[in-house]
């Protein structure tokens, strides 16, 4: 089963931080407090959108055709995501 990396606290729904990293080879464990990378702070749907955007070389028209939706809908989704990323104070 492919497990999903949780990004939000199940108790208070705040963004989670990375507090432990481990090496599978030598079992070295690194502890600390690291913020999640920007990409992981986005919803799975937004992450999928970015991946598609990248795979279509940034062509919204091609994305629209692949996703079966219209060009303005894809452009609106992109604009909403840009606003969301700006709101994350990055």
């Amino acid at each position: 089963m492919k497990t999903k990396l949780p990004t939000l606290c199940p108790s208070c729904e705040s963004l989670l931080n990375v507090s432990q990293l481990s090496c599978e080879n030598c079992q070295t464990v690194v502890q600390g407090t690291y913020p999640l990378p920007i990409f992981l702070k986005l919803s799975p749907k937004e992450q999928e959108f970015i991946l598609q955007f990248f795979l279509t070389s940034g062509s919204l028209k091609e994305m629209a055709s692949q996703l079966g939706i219209s060009y303005p809908t894809v452009r609106n989704q992109l604009d909403d995501m840009i606003q969301h990323i700006k709101d994350l104070n990055i």
């Binding site: 055709s65 219209s70 809908t73």
Partner: peptide, 10 residues
């Protein structure tokens, strides 16, 4: 219809 149909078809 504007969300799913391609602009040229519309």
């Amino acid at each position: 219809p504007f969300a799913i149909i391609e602009d040229k078809k519309l």
